[in-house]
Design a binder for these strands. Structure first.
Lengths: 203, 203
DNA sequence: ATCAATAATTGCACACAGTGCATTTTTGCA
DNA sequence: TGCAAAAATGCACTGTGTGCAATTATTGAT
């Protein structure tokens, strides 16, 4: 029984990887928008209909991983010490993201490269980023409780700003072909908006 | 000759308004995603093909105005005194946006309401917001010259953060049905990320 | 090895957004 | 009124994505 699931799952995972590899090869050659789902399916030797059993849509080829990230972000934020300055907590919550860029820089770079060529794709990514924001806001609101008026809005502004810094840092990281360390770049990006470590006392 | 252009243009503008009114009526009744372009065209009494002569795509019904805004933002930013603190300059550049919400709150509210119902539409809006960011970054980079390393990235982070604050403030403003003044809310949003007025000297 | 249940694959028809092109209708104006 | 430009339209087409039914493998049990 465990073998049945194992074999099935393994085959599925294999095909998934095949599809992604074929797709990115085509993206690199012709661009994202110019590549049709049918072309990808043909390349792998499956039908168009089957493609859509593996990926809900074409964009998920590039952005599929991002969905899972919201939960990880939320957990990371909750694990930070409650007394920590919120801006720093946000920075630390992005650490596993930094790890991803050091562990598989090529893959991340490939994804960013494709996004850079398709505004619509980039827009969808920003949409997913906003779902990350929604995942962070509750915990952040708890931290900022008492900051009136509009505590929820303030949490949204701060979370959105942090994610904007992450995006800017990722973009710069990509422009340097993933040759630099994202960590310090993200530090610089966030530091240029607000200090990561409090020097004065909070009001 | 001037009358010809005038008459033609007036008719065009009239039809444009008709389309928008019909569209938003349908959006309110059935939702954005559930409303087809054909339905809108039928409602106005034009063909689907003609609809696409008035609007490049369905999303432009809601987001069409946003394109023009990038230039205004860029100009507003350039008109701020160069010595002004960058974060404050960004806040001031958003003023004409605040004016829009006070001058025609219903229209803005309608747009936000539709966006709130369609993630894809919201994503496209965020995409346009990023084009605003690109419009701001050059001037901002000039301001931040000398802030090493990655001055461009820092400008992007700051511009993106400011726009995230704008988005958060607009969202909160919408959730209050446009009954409040956006100005103070935007002040609060940006102030909660970084002080709008410098108390200490800059490094 | 065979067979029945189960899951994966596929084909087909369809809906919708959007585009190109040729044709028809409308309209402003001399 | 009639002519030339502009607008509207019909039609065929591409591409994404979905529902459904038929088909094909795959699995575990006999």
């Amino acid at each position: 029984m465990s073998t049945e699931l194992g074999v099935r799952a393994a085959r599925k995972q294999l095909t998934t990887r095949e599809i992604i590899m074929a797709a990115f090869a085509l993206f690199a050659r012709q661009g994202y928008d110019e590549t049709t789902v049918e072309q990808i399916a043909d390349q792998v030797g499956i039908s168009k209909r089957t493609f859509f059993r593996y990926f809900a849509n074409k964009e998920d080829l590039v952005l599929g991983n991002l969905d899972h990230t919201a939960i990880r972000l939320e957990l990371a934020m909750k694990e930070r010490p409650p007394a920590e300055h919120a801006w720093l907590s946000l920075r630390r919550s992005f650490d596993f993201f930094v790890e991803a860029t050091t562990e598989e820089p090529e893959r991340v770079c490939d994804n960013l490269r494709v996004m850079a060529t398709s505004p619509a794709l980039k827009a969808t990514q920003l949409g997913k980023l906003q779902r990350w924001q929604s995942a962070i806001v509750p915990e952040l609101t708890r931290r900022l409780a008492g900051e009136e008026p509009f505590p929820q809005m303030r949490a949204g502004a701060m979370a959105g700003s942090a994610l904007a810094c992450l995006d800017a840092a990722m973009d710069a990281w990509y422009l340097h072909s993933g040759m630099l360390n994202l960590g310090p770049m993200l530090d610089a990006a966030m530091e240029s908006v607000a200090p990561l470590h409090e020097f004065a006392l909070q009001s």
